[in-house]
C-alpha cells in the first residue's frame, strides 16, 4: 500500500483535522533505518485502513513540522488523534510494538 506524503503546507488539513487518527512517519532519503521501518508502516496502513490514516513526511523537504514537534532523530512516528499529539515513537520499532501503541487510540 502506497503511503501518501504530507507537507508543511497541508499538515493541518491532512493530519490535525483528520477525522481518523493519523500515524505519520518522518523520514529522509539518507536514513537507512527509515527504509528499514517503511515496509512495516506500509503493512500497518493496509491492515488498519478502516480505523487509521497513515502518512509520511520527508524532513528534508519539510522543516517546519519536524521543528514544531522537536524531532531530532528519524525515523520518528507520531500519532495524532483529534488534532492532538498522542504518541511519539523514535527509531526502528517492531510491528507488534507499533500496533500495540497505536491500538490504544483506535
Amino acid at each position: 500500500m502506497d503511503i501518501p506524503s504530507v507537507t508543511d503546507a497541508n499538515f493541518d488539513e491532512e493530519v490535525l483535522k483528520s477525522p481518523l487518527p493519523v500515524l505519520i512517519d518522518f523520514w529522509a532519503a539518507w536514513c537507512v533505518p527509515c527504509r528499514m521501518i517503511a515496509p512495516t508502516v506500509e503493512q500497518i496502513a493496509e491492515s488498519h485502513k478502516e480505523k487509521l490514516k497513515v502518512a509520511k513526511m520527508n524532513v528534508d523537504e519539510n522543516m517546519k513540522t519536524p521543528g514544531k514537534y522537536g524531532i531530532r532523530g528519524i525515523p520518528t512516528l507520531l500519532l495524532f488523534k483529534g488534532g492532538e499529539l498522542k504518541e511519539t515513537m523514535v527509531g526502528v520499532q517492531s510491528k507488534d510494538k507499533i500496533i500495540e501503541i497505536v491500538s490504544k487510540h483506535l
Binding site: W30, C31, V32, P33, G70, I71, R72, G73, I74, V90
Partner: peptide
Amino acid sequence: TGKGISYCATCDGP
C-alpha cells in the same frame, strides 16, 4: 532519545 540523543550518526547527523 530522538530529542538529542542518538545511536546513529548517519541518520540523525543532519
